[in-house]
Computed example of a mutant assay.
Amino acid sequence: MAVIEVTIVPLGTGSPSISQYVASCHKILAGEKDIKYQLTPMSTIIEGDLDKVLAIIRRMHEAPFGAGAQRVSTTIRIDDRRDKELTMDGKIQSVMAKI
């Protein structure tokens, strides 16, 4: 299982506000099974099968275009650990145990 951070930024919208575009991307996530996700102030963190999550991110990347954006910039960071199970909660607990 991978933990992926994604930031999707619509450009050319004529407005500095992007919350409606973020909401449309999260509607895509809400319809998915077998993934876990968390909205943060600056990005979205998704936990799940890497291939499945990348396919979902592709659909999320297209959502702002469908809502009128002329350009979309998407940044993806992938943490894919193979020696043990990796989860969002596990990453946080590991740090908290050391504080």
Rank of each mutant, 00 (worst) to 15 (best):
D51V: 13
R59F: 01
T40E: 12
D51A: 15
E47M: 12
A69K: 09
K98I: 13
Y37T: 04
I76S: 02
G14A: 07
A67T: 00
Q93G: 00
K36I: 04
F65H: 15
T87P: 02
M1D: 04
E32G: 00
P64H: 06
A63F: 04
L39S: 12
Y37W: 15
V6N: 05
G48C: 07
G90P: 07
P10K: 09
L29M: 05
M96R: 15
E85V: 03
I35F: 03
Q70C: 00
M88R: 11
I46K: 04
R81C: 00
I8T: 14
I8Y: 03
R71E: 09
D79F: 04
D83N: 06
I78A: 05
M88T: 10
A55L: 12
M96C: 02
M96L: 15
I4Q: 10
S24I: 04
K84S: 09
K52M: 11
M96N: 08
I35E: 02
L39R: 08
G48N: 08
A30W: 00
K98R: 15
S17G: 09
S73T: 11
K27N: 06
A30M: 11
S24Q: 11
G66D: 13
P16N: 06
D80Q: 04
C25F: 03
T87C: 01
V9P: 03
M96Y: 07
T87D: 05
A63S: 14
L54M: 15
K27L: 09
A23C: 05
V6C: 10
V22K: 02
G31A: 01
D80V: 02
L86N: 12
I35C: 03
E85S: 03
L39I: 14
A55E: 15
I76G: 03
M42F: 15
S73Q: 08
A69V: 09
H26A: 02
A30T: 01
Q38Y: 04
Y37C: 04
V53Y: 07
I8C: 12
T7E: 13
I92F: 12
I4D: 06
G48P: 06
D89F: 01
D79Q: 01
K98Q: 15
R81T: 04
A2R: 09
E5H: 02
V53S: 09
A69P: 08
R58H: 13
I92S: 06
Q20V: 09
A69Y: 06
Y21H: 11
V22T: 02
I76A: 01
D49A: 05
G14D: 05
V6A: 12
V6Q: 05
G31R: 08
I56R: 10
T7H: 07
E32T: 00
F65D: 11
E47A: 07
V22Y: 04
I4H: 10
G68M: 10
G31V: 08
P64M: 07
D79P: 00
D83G: 00
I56V: 14
M1A: 07
K27Q: 13
G31D: 14
D51M: 08
K91Y: 05
K33E: 14
S15Q: 12
I28D: 04
H61C: 05
I28R: 01
V9S: 12
E5C: 06
E47W: 09
T40S: 13
K27D: 14
L54P: 06
E5A: 13
D49W: 04
K84E: 11
A63T: 03
C25L: 01
H26C: 07
I56N: 07
P16S: 11
R81A: 00
T75I: 12
G31E: 13
A2V: 09
S73E: 08
G68Y: 08
Y37V: 02
